[in-house]
Every structure is written in structure tokens, then in C-alpha cells.
Design a protein around this nucleic acid. Structure first.
Length: 201
DNA sequence: GTCCGGATAA
DNA sequence: TTATCGGGAC
């Protein structure tokens, strides 16, 4: 896998993904970005920030319909508004939650409504700064093209076992995979794929 | 019309 | 495994 990482890094350079002022902002962004373009997430984040709502207590207490309007641009705004309120309440009541060991933290996150495996790992990696490799749709797709099959956990193990346990590397690699996926997989430029031609990772 | 930095209930 | 949630950009 490290070869794939180096190929992507050479092609695209460092991405500096997931800009955010606070850990909580990463958590909120992780929910808002589900099935949504990042540009639209930034608008919603800006809306919340301008009103001082990008903090645990204010966001947990905001009127539901008001919150829906502020995040409407991210789509799925009704379910996302409910989830944001409940997760804000949880983080307000458990302020040190991100300091827990990554395995325990991941299980706790998964028990929250609106948090599946990808979102949980995104929070563990980008908010808590712990080594958990994020598997998204592009990662699965690229693996399939390389002949690697498996469910979420199996693919995650393949990446984590073949890479040094390095948080910045995990962050960068996932960002590069998404960038690559957008440009090639998403545009169906399979004949130009630089990852599959030599087969193995 | 298609696609996005998915999760959930059925 | 499939339907649903959904606005915005192309």
C-alpha cells in the first residue's frame, strides 16, 4: 500500500485535508459531509460559526427548524439537524470523549445515531488524531479494481497492516485517494488509471 | 439527468 | 439488499 501512497503523493502533492479550527468542528463536518460536496459543508459551517453555534452547548439547544435552515445547503437537512443536536448534546455531556482510547472511542461513536463506520473513523482520525484508516466509496472501488475484496473491516485491516501507524500519513493517504477517485474513477477514466496497471499494491 | 468526503430502517 | 433522505453543481 505504501507504493500506492507514494504514487498518489507524487501526482497530487500534499492535500492538507479537513481544515477546521476545533475538534468539534471536525465532528460536525463529518456528519454534514455525508453524501454531500465539501463546498456545501463549508457554507453550513460558516452559517453556524457566524452565529456562534459551532459549540457543544449552543448547538444542542438551538431550535430544530432554525438549524434545518442553516444547514439546508448540505442536503438531508432534516435528519442531519436532528443528528447534530443529539451529538452536540452528547459531546457537551462528555467533554473528554475524544481522549478515550481509539477502540473504545470508535465503539461509542458508532452507537450514536447518524454515525456509521466511515464517519466514526473520520472523527477518530481527523478530530481525535488517532490511527484509524478511513475506508470510503473510492477506496472500496480502487481496491476492487486491484482485485482486493472484503467488507469495511477487512479493507481497513489491509491498509493498517501494510502501513506504518502514522496519523499524518493516514490523513494524507485518504485525502489523496478521494482526490484521485474524483478525477479518475468519477470521470470513468479507467484507461488512464495509474494504480491498477501494475496490479498489486 | 447524474453525482456527492453515508446511515438507517425495513 | 433496497428505499429513503435532498439541495447544489454540472
Amino acid at each position: 500500500m505504501i507504493d500506492v501512497y507514494n504514487k498518489l503523493l507524487n501526482q497530487f502533492g500534499s492535500k492538507d485535508w479537513w481544515p477546521a479550527d476545533t475538534q468539534f468542528e471536525v465532528v460536525i463536518g463529518a456528519l454534514l459531509t455525508q453524501q454531500t460536496r465539501w463546498e456545501n459543508v463549508e457554507r453550513a459551517i460558516k452559517n453556524l460559526k457566524e452565529r456562534g453555534l459551532l459549540e457543544q452547548e449552543p448547538l444542542s439547544r438551538i431550535d430544530l427548524e432554525e438549524l434545518e435552515e442553516l444547514i439546508r445547503c448540505t442536503g438531508f437537512y432534516r435528519q442531519k439537524a436532528k443528528r447534530l443536536k443529539s451529538i452536540s448534546e452528547f459531546f457537551f455531556e462528555n467533554p473528554d470523549i475524544l481522549k478515550k482510547p481509539e477502540d473504545e472511542l470508535r465503539d461509542i461513536l458508532l452507537s450514536l445515531n447518524g454515525v456509521g463506520e466511515e464517519t466514526a473513523d473520520s472523527i477518530v482520525l481527523y478530530a481525535a488524531d488517532r490511527p484509524r484508516f478511513v475506508i470510503d466509496a473510492y477506496t472500496k472501488r480502487i481496491c476492487m479494481c486491484m482485485g482486493i475484496k472484503g467488507d469495511y473491516g477487512e479493507l481497513q485491516s489491509i491498509f493498517e497492516d501494510s502501513l506504518p501507524q502514522d496519523v499524518p500519513l493516514y490523513k494524507e493517504f485518504h485525502a489523496l485517494i478521494v482526490e484521485y477517485g474524483k478525477r479518475f474513477c468519477g470521470q470513468k477514466r479507467c484507461t488512464e488509471c495509474i494504480l491498477v496497471e501494475n496490479g498489486k499494491m
